[in-house]
């Protein structure tokens, strides 16, 4: 049985239909890639899976670990084990990065989080991501550069250990080194808990170091092709032209 099962999913935003009839299955520990040209609706899928109230399901179902998600609120989905790394992480003034994640862990497990072991894990994860330890005490994302914001997202992913991590354009705006560091983090996640991954992207840099199981191509809100990792090479060489319907 798949970990994530998406059947006939259609989604509208502000009354405008964006996704049409999406089918997608992700098994435990698998790495899937969702690629498509800009405006194809990739991020919409990520937000919909996470339950953003602005996105309305007009048809279809989302099942996660056997549980139907359609009407479940965002925080319950997070606690069920879904993680979304935001393309544009939000600044949360007054709340430190460290405090924020620790609280989130508390929300998830329902148990108080032991400070000492938490701090050890935090430090280790920050080192893996080459993050300056001082960021732990800084207000979450406030004044962070684009790269640091993305790293902070991956850091949270490593600490929250979800069953499925959705990475929304995580490599956009990052320089070469940052991409490499972030990829290391993603790999660590894959290995540690056999986490499933849905990497949403329109470029391929971040995919170079990952083992990819399945690639889905999305164009104008529809999945037009599903295949294996070899699709990535094709996109690299010829872009999306094969998949974009002639006007």
């Amino acid at each position: 049985m798949s970990l994530l099962e998406v059947k006939n999913l259609s989604v509208s935003v502000d009354g405008k239909p964006i996704l049409h009839d999406i089918d997608l299955n992700i098994g435990e520990g698998e790495t899937h890639v969702l690629m498509g040209p800009n405006g194809a609706g990739k991020s919409t899928l990520g937000y919909t899976l996470m339950g953003n109230p602005r996105y309305t399901l007009t048809d279809g179902t989302i099942t996660f670990g056997g549980q139907k998600l359609n009407d479940l609120s965002t925080d319950k989905r997070a606690r069920a084990g879904i993680f979304l790394s935001f393309q544009n992480p939000i600044e949360v003034p007054g709340v430190s990065l460290s405090g924020f994640v620790r609280n989130a862990l508390h929300e998830q497990t329902g148990q108080p989080v032991k400070l000492f072991s938490y701090q050890k894990k935090l430090r280790a994860a920050m080192e893996l991501l080459s993050m300056d330890p001082a960021y732990a005490d800084r207000d979450l994302n406030v004044g962070f550069s684009g790269g640091e914001k993305k790293k902070a997202e991956i850091l949270q992913m490593l600490l929250l250990q979800p069953k499925l991590a959705i990475l929304d354009e995580t490599d956009s705006g990052l320089d070469v080194d940052a991409v490499r560091t972030v990829s290391q983090g993603v790999q660590a996640y894959q290995e540690s808990k056999n986490g499933a991954l849905l990497v949403i992207t329109h470029a391929t840099r971040i995919l170079e170091s990952l083992h990819v199981d399945t690639v889905h191509i999305i164009v104008k809100g529809r999945i037009v092709e599903t295949g294996d990792a070899s699709l990535i090479e094709e996109i690299n060489e010829r872009g999306f032209e094969r998949f974009v319907p002639a006007e």
């Binding site: 109230p53 997070a78 939000i90 949360v92 609280n103 989130a104 929300e107 929250l160």
Partner: peptide, 25 residues
Amino acid sequence: EEMLFYMCARGYSEDDARRLIVQAR
């Protein structure tokens, strides 16, 4: 809304998210 969604996406219930932000302020 964005901030609330971000926090809920990390497992905070809406009430908890609100409380955290208000207290932080």
